[in-house]
Amino acid sequence: EDARLPPPQNISILSTNMRHFLTWSPVTIQGETVRYSVEFQGEYEREYANESWIPIGECSLITATVCNITEDISATVAYSLRVRADGGARRSEWGTLKGFFNRNTTSLTPPLMKVTADGYHLLVELEDMGPAFQFCVLYWKKGEESRMQQKMVKEVSSTVHLDTMEAGREYCVKAQTYVDTINRSSSFSQAQCVRAQGDRSVWL
């Protein structure tokens, strides 16, 4: 009987909004629980530390086939990742991710936001996506798209006050995320429009 387990296959990264997960296909053995261990290697380790690998404690001898590597992918350099299987008394060779992973390839989605009119005040609440994220918010009077205004929101702690609105006018808002550490932005969210209180009086 072959003493070694086959290495995990289909090793890949799922990375969205700066949260990175390593996934792989399960290794199956009749009647045995298979456990997996994950290690990473940054560009520093490859070039300055004898190509050493570093184990991820939270993903040592786990039964799941996914590992959250976000905390360890904390620099904008190329990382290698590998995973191996242990089952019964048997152990596999390392299965290594094809190519490298750099967090600047993460996919960025537009932020969730809620736009409200509080009397004459145009307010927006933005999704808290973590410390790496800033937001570019654009807002305008409906029909006056050419006179868009912009506000950069560096920290999402509470509702953001955008503008004081004209009575009865409709205002629209859209937003995108910006991640400074990788110098990239998401696409813009759908515009949301609200109407200020009061009716639009016509000045003669």
Binding site: E45, E47, Y48, I54, I56, A75, T76, V77
Partner: peptide
Amino acid sequence: NRKISSIANSFLS
């Protein structure tokens, strides 16, 4: 060691 790696790779970048 993981944290030192994070710092070292950030310094490299």
